[in-house]
Design a protein around this nucleic acid. Sequence first.
DNA 1: TGTGTTGTGATTAAGTGAGTGAATGAGCTT
DNA 2: AAGCTCATTCACTCACTTAATCACAACACA
Lengths: 271, 271
Amino acid sequence: MNELTGDDQAIELLQQLGLKEYEAKSFVALSRVSAGTAKDISERSEVPRTRVYDAVRVLESKGLVEIHHSNPQQFRAVSVDEAADILRDEYHDRTESLRETLKALEPITTEPERDVTHEVWALSGNRTITARTEQLVSEADDEVVLILGDETMFTESLQDALEAAEQRGVTIIVGAAIEELRTTVQSALPDAEVFVSGLSWLASSDPDDQTDIERLLLVDRTTILISTSSGREDDEKAIFGRGFDNGLVTIVRRLMATGLLPVDDPGSERP
Amino acid sequence: MNELTGDDQAIELLQQLGLKEYEAKSFVALSRVSAGTAKDISERSEVPRTRVYDAVRVLESKGLVEIHHSNPQQFRAVSVDEAADILRDEYHDRTESLRETLKALEPITTEPERDVTHEVWALSGNRTITARTEQLVSEADDEVVLILGDETMFTESLQDALEAAEQRGVTIIVGAAIEELRTTVQSALPDAEVFVSGLSWLASSDPDDQTDIERLLLVDRTTILISTSSGREDDEKAIFGRGFDNGLVTIVRRLMATGLLPVDDPGSERP
DNA sequence: TGTGTTGTGATTAAGTGAGTGAATGAGCTT
DNA sequence: AAGCTCATTCACTCACTTAATCACAACACA
């Protein structure tokens, strides 16, 4: 039972935020008392007494700790909110700075676009997959077939993208895993065809199978995206393929054509 | 002379945001092109080519890069805004999490675990796909489900691989697109379960759709290969995915579990 | 069949941080 | 003032991570 204590949790977070182990431990120890000496910190944390000074000095330079130069020295942690704000702002500034710097970089233009009709890409992360999903929807010309396994996938921006596509004359067909989601989607997109049945194969029949299909997107019968999630936080993974003769695209197109999903085979109406 | 270039600034920022040197350099190099191979990245950055793969894999898991499993592999960076948002949110979440943890010391123990089985490969060419198919069959431990759309796919060496698997105790299930092929296979593999029905979705219902599914292979419910052909000479293309939670594998596994194909779902000792 | 390329793995070198303890020095005790 | 305790600094070792290089198998190309 390695149950993480609150202390350990906080220490880990602080380390993920760039602090060293001794720094993180010292800060947490300090946070629980109004003030303390190096000895106090060393006893509360696992930090060797002789190294508390280094750690605290760094913390001080980050603005997380105040030092009282007495003998012995006294140290005091800033308030939790203050500390969190300091760290948040620090990284916020960095990301914004990164954004500008990257944007300023001139893109090397004229890359030879390679074989677009037979590619399969692997993606990870809810955010990345969401962005790709919306991008694909907004690139749709004729038809969007979207199946959602989870109501959290139906975000506002996705709804916007679907509405915009609808305005362009794109046929929107949405499948929902549960009735509740179907209702939500239908009211948000009155003109779209929304269904809930025919999706039994989405659910897992294997007790050992924790993998859920979160999204399934078919755009213009030529591009497909499938994402799965193991249930853990932000563990969504997706593959997305392009090209009419792409095997991945082909199989899903076929499945829909034979009535597995309650939509007409879009391919058979092709001129 | 040695002023900091935009690249260097971006690299430094990325490292401050927790990326390793190679990861940062690879990402910046990728950001300037629409897509690139390991070689491209290595040439544009200072990253040894052989280390690009590691770096990019980490970037993919963070959602900053998409991977195209072709040969050579291609990599693509997400947009600058997406990347910045991902990193910003990551640290924002951490600081808020830290705030709560420090305020109320409640243990929330969840240790992220990463699995590596998230690959999708694209293959082309009859020969390559044949070899891969046989390789996968010979690696099977429990079960091989193979569907053949064309009698030319049932080669002698494939037959050997299937027989060898059968000797090992692997369950062999073969689906044939036409009765003629079914007969051939059944006589070659008397102990295998061979069927021809239930494959309507294999055939094209679209007159314009010249793409035929040539093979569909599912091994041990964790690895799948789908190949298609446009009918022209040696135009076979396949994708093959590995990993229980791979979206491609998942969807086919599900389909079989719900009886689309006339085999029992081997994975579910359903209650 | 060679030849160059791609991708993986192993190995070595360099750097960083954790952990330990000696050296310094400042007060305090006697 | 000498001896003592404690606070503080500094220097060093060890372990681990990361950078860098190499060797090699698989594959594509010609």
